[in-house]
């Protein structure tokens, strides 16, 4: 049976909840946006249900406190087959009544861990490579083109750090943004004119940073390859110091 859900994680967990209720049949998951009507499978549309999703998440939490978050990360990878891998990992966990993630010998677990690792790296890069430009003393804006949909994962970090400022971080690929002020932060979809709003220009501190970065170069230890390993060229578009 093919379970069709509404592209959201809550939707996915609702589908998982439904799947746990089925005993015999083979189950697969698909997002509405990727849906192509199949020939052989029976299709069921899953109604997104907060309550059910929460029950799944709570069950996972009991296996290990970090488990819901890690599986969510894996899901955000949107890799082919990841829904199935996560579902099987959850089943395994509930079967052994323990955290399944250390059982790397299991291929589903391995796939899940691999996906979450990729997303974790992208999140780490988000923490590292966001560069705010300054519109006014209390308004900052930054752009990203991340490999994965990481904004939901990095919002809290930046909000906690710059709570007093108003800021926006835009995902130029997915046309979404984090909007934060001292009362909280949220993820929004951007309108075309909001996407095209240019970043703030350079000022004396931008230039100081660029010079400082240049000064730190160390001719005796020059190693461009290593530098590229850590800061791949494709991530430099918005990095002030590489402009």
């Amino acid at each position: 049976m093919l379970l069709l859900y509404d592209n959201t994680y809550t939707g996915f967990l609702s589908a998982v909840f439904k799947a746990f209720g089925q005993t015999k049949e083979e189950i697969a998951f698909v997002k509405e946006k990727n849906f192509v009507p199949p020939v052989l499978f029976e299709v069921q549309q899953v109604a997104t249900n907060e309550q059910q999703a929460k029950r799944v998440a709570n069950g996972l939490q009991k296996l290990h406190p970090q488990l819901p978050k890690i599986l969510y990360k894996a899901w955000l990878s949107e890799r082919t087959g990841i829904d199935q891998a996560i579902y099987q990992t959850m089943r395994l966990g509930f079967k052994i009544k323990n955290n399944p993630l250390s059982l790397l010998q299991n291929d589903w677990v391995k796939q899940t861990m691999l996906a979450q690792k990729k997303v974790s790296l992208a999140v780490e890069r988000g923490y590292q490579f966001v560069r705010f430009t300054k519109f006014t003393d209390s308004f900052y804006i930054a752009d990203l083109e991340p490999e994965y949909n990481i904004l939901p994962l990095i919002g809290q970090h930046f909000h906690a750090r710059f709570a007093e400022a108003n800021f926006i971080i835009r995902d130029k690929i997915r046309k979404t943004a984090i909007i934060s002020n001292k009362n909280g932060w949220q993820l929004v979809e951007l309108l075309p004119e909001q996407i095209n709003l240019p970043l703030a220009g350079t000022d004396e501190y931008t230039r100081m940073w660029q010079n400082y970065f240049k000064v730190l170069a160390n001719p005796q230890r020059h190693n461009t390859k290593l530098q590229q390993k850590f800061v791949p060229l494709k991530h430099r578009k918005y990095l002030t110091e590489f402009k």
């Binding site: 590292q128 730190l216 160390n218 020059h222 290593l226 530098q227 850590f230």
Partner: peptide
């Protein structure tokens, strides 16, 4: 504003590959 992140974050790498 500001907090110290437990793991420390490298924000960029200099041309000799050092974490900045």
């Amino acid at each position: 504003f500001g907090n110290a992140h437990m793991a420390g974050i490298c924000h960029t790498w200099t041309d000799d590959g050092r974490c900045l």
